[in-house]
Design a protein around this nucleic acid. Structure first.
Lengths: 277, 277
DNA sequence: GAATCCAATTGATTGTGATCAAATGGCTGT
DNA sequence: ACAGCCATTTGATCACAATCAATTGGATTC
């Protein structure tokens, strides 16, 4: 699916070159003990027990078709902070997040940064133009990825229409999520931005873990730094911190640690997020 | 391609209901004099002379295949200011812009608005979730659209792999354009935003009309209002106006009319756009 | 050509979030 | 337990874009 495109990619970026995780071996699918429990010549159906399957590209496949599709996949582990790829790198692989969280970001030459998304379980990573990625991708915490080479992905897309339409659907959802975030960046106040961010984290948790009805309180984990949150919301760390404090003093959230937020009034938080308050 | 999705669409929006252009007839393809020159039972190959073809969804098709593909399309005309569809409207059609320009926007309940894109010749319109559009779409100037029903689009996508892969490619480009714009909204200064906007308009013009080499000056048309520009860039009209004045006083642009800008130093404008200056 | 209307521009002031700076808190390792 | 380190929070000040307000300009109508 990553095909020939014409789009102006401006300039090569050199900058600091952090740990790119290139030393990480691309373990053959089925050989990772934490996924399959055993190894061998015959590929195990690790896809069947994959925690990301329900949310991922492959969600439309099951049984024999799923394991056949999975044959061409490999896995990769990243430690917190490791870089998966950089903007302008050759787009060789197409990834799906199995566990952990990855941040995608674009930078200006003077260091200003915009995080364009946090990718977690089930999300895909690897869009680009002209055979090159269009953003930096870095692990926020320890991450496990399922990956295909781009050529393999392309043939699989042609072969499995369910995967193709699921990718289409996911890209469509992605576009709308980005438009949503543009509204946030361009027009929302800091308190609306932070509230919106926390609500999204809550919704994501409900999507993954299931939501109890009538819940007005949720526990949210924020594995990323305040700097990451600031660069995602178009704020400074100080404003992020102050705004979180404000929400705390309003009795809407409680901070257990700086990484663990307990939302005590989700309803009110949603009102704030949408600027209705 | 617009299939079943799960995505939280918040609330119904009522608001002001402007002219939705519903009285406009959906002329059968080939019957519009401005496109085909004559009408009749036999469909004319208006696709072959379509100005959008090179840039559009159908760019991969030619000859008999193209005209067969075009059979299921219809055309629609909108006058400046008319609404094509509203957020949350049922997503019945998938559009391609033939001529003119459409703005896509999302609104907050208190009237704050973010324009998520200006769509012109060749661009597609009509993404949504759960069978509903996710943005308002309004004509900026007089617009001609080529449209398919969503079911027809889906069958055509399955039938014509070139169209399918082209749509994929276009959606991919769209995602990256949106990410780019997020960087602008979150991290760029007013002068960078305006410069960036003007550069994009220039690039678009080059893409459509072809670029003479070594050109350092371009004439750009801005059919949208200052309010639209402000809502696209996350600024106020006053700041848009002042910033344009600043660029004028820097000798980088000249205003022929408020809608017609002559860029006299495209190179410098590009530097400003990227924050390199 | 004058009057009307609306968009765009320019001017004056304010307020909010950025910036600069210091303090606190939570880890790590010894 | 303490030092050292870094992330986060809190504090003080500032600057820039938003706001409020007035003027200009261009198009349309009579």
């Amino acid at each position: 699916m990553v095909e020939n495109m014409t789009y102006n990619v401006a300039l090569e970026k050199t900058k600091h070159a952090p740990d790119r995780g290139d030393h990480e071996t691309l373990d053959q699918a089925g050989k990772l003990s934490f996924l399959s429990g055993h190894s061998g010549q015959v590929k195990t159906d690790y896809c069947k027990s994959c925690g990301a399957h329900r949310l991922a590209l492959c969600s439309g496949l099951k049984g024999a078709e799923l394991s056949q599709f999975g044959q061409k996949s490999k896995h990769k582990k990243l430690n917190a902070g490791q870089m998966l790829f950089g903007e302008f790198d050759e787009a060789k692989y197409f990834y799906t997040v199995v566990s952990g969280e990855v941040r995608l970001s674009r930078m200006l030459d003077d260091g200003r940064r915009q995080i364009t998304g946090f990718k977690s379980t089930g999300d895909f990573i690897g869009l680009g133009v002209d055979g090159h990625y269009a953003a930096d991708a870095e692990a926020i915490d320890d991450v496990v990825l399922c990956l295909f080479t781009v050529p393999n992905m392309n043939t699989s897309l042609a072969e499995y229409t369910e995967v193709q339409s699921r990718l289409m659907e996911m890209m469509q959802t992605e576009v709308i999520k980005l438009q949503n975030h543009m509204l946030l960046l361009g027009r929302k106040t800091p308190i609306e931005k932070i509230s919106n961010f926390l609500c999204e984290r809550a919704n994501r948790k409900f999507l993954v873990e299931g939501q109890e009805d009538e819940t007005n309180s949720v526990e949210i984990r924020l594995p990323m730094s305040r700097t990451d949150i600031a660069d995602f919301l178009g704020l400074t760390i100080e404003t992020v911190s102050r705004t979180i404090t404000k929400l705390r003093k309003l009795g809407i959230i409680e901070l257990q640690t700086s990484q663990n937020v307990l939302v005590t009034d989700l309803y009110e938080l949603q009102l704030l997020a949408n600027g209705d308050a």
